[in-house]
Design a protein around this nucleic acid. Sequence first.
DNA 1: TTCTTTTGTTACAGAAATATTACAATTTAA
DNA 2: TTAAATTGTAATATTTCTGTAACAAAAGAA
Lengths: 226, 226
Amino acid sequence: MKGKIFIIEDEASIIQLVQLNLEKEGFIVASSLNGNEGLKGLKKFEPNLLLLDWMLPDLSGIDVCKNIRKDNNFKNLPIIMLTAKGEEEDKIKGLESGVDDYITKPFSFNELSARIKAVLRRSDPNIVANDLIFEDLKLDRIEKRVFRDEKEIQLGPTEFRLLEFFLTNPKRVYSRDQILETVWPNNVNVESRTIDVHIRRLRQSINIKDKKELIRTVRSSGYSLV
Amino acid sequence: MKGKIFIIEDEASIIQLVQLNLEKEGFIVASSLNGNEGLKGLKKFEPNLLLLDWMLPDLSGIDVCKNIRKDNNFKNLPIIMLTAKGEEEDKIKGLESGVDDYITKPFSFNELSARIKAVLRRSDPNIVANDLIFEDLKLDRIEKRVFRDEKEIQLGPTEFRLLEFFLTNPKRVYSRDQILETVWPNNVNVESRTIDVHIRRLRQSINIKDKKELIRTVRSSGYSLV
DNA sequence: TTCTTTTGTTACAGAAATATTACAATTTAA
DNA sequence: TTAAATTGTAATATTTCTGTAACAAAAGAA
């Protein structure tokens, strides 16, 4: 994690908090308290991503954004907008003006961090850790590939997400409900038994003969990666 | 134990009592005496869990709950509802509105504490202590594993719960009825002698040769871990 | 000792949880 | 549009777990 992140935000306390945490994760951070200064600082700093407040004392976030998009050097700079409003209308306006993602204040740092990584993953994959590795199993989030013991394995979309989920917390046992909540799109109703079937399919795919079983069944509790 | 807990409850005495005890356990606690203020306070405080009274002077607990679930930042905030009513109907309503657990007033602090930890264990496992250790015995609640003297031991679900129960209060003697109440799912009727059989199974599993017996029989009283 | 009460042990049938399979419906790719 | 891949479910098979009853053993009481 060696990317550079620029913050334009007028509340110094937010900058401080975010900067501290991002630096802890290995990002290099610079910031500015208003739009005009921000635009200048940006050009010097050449960040990989910009966190941009919606409401600024001089220019609005959208103005800053439009300004940036005009500049050939920053046409593709990923921008995450910070906004206190939750209105749908604003979100649409923001996306039209070329914002990559949104986050509504107050936000937890975990959420911010997740969004930053998701955006960077698309724009600048090298900056972010994209491989999930567990023993001889490797999952590449960028190329959407899975390897066991160097050999590539074909997985369907659901099995891929399922494995990705297990890999974010290997060894931990998850109940069927937890799996359902996280791996399946929201508000989708599927039988919890359906998971058994997907577990089976995943097992069939990732298990190699002479290699140990990777998915543990914990009766009455769920499954885990081991 | 470093999590943050927010309480919305109109009886100041309850808040005081709960807050005192939770802080003793290392939680950071904030509170509010009514629903509207609570919703605001909540957003500033960013708790890991909310204790929510069912009856509030302004909004009902359910309203507060629904309100919270609408907010993207708090959609997944674990909520434990405090209620004086015991009616089944209410429980169902509450669960539909997205509550994670229930507790009926009056409650003992021990019960509350246990439920809080159980809920946190699911949502935010890092906050809660997850390993139960007694001498050379270790039970890992996250991975659902048990070790004696570093060596793993296979246990069935009931034996696991039974051991987990003993480990939360080693040395203390429990009657068969107490064990039944806590270890078995509610409203299940099993012979109290059945426990003897499970004790035997547990003993067989966790006893290693040359190592001392871990479960003590207290004639006419029950069993304990020693 | 002898009787009474409590606990230990064993075996087993039924229950519960999981695994596996097949299939129809849907989505995606060709 | 057709063919192939993917998904969810239901039905069935298999495995593992549970509770109970029956008898044995142990501990107290008389």
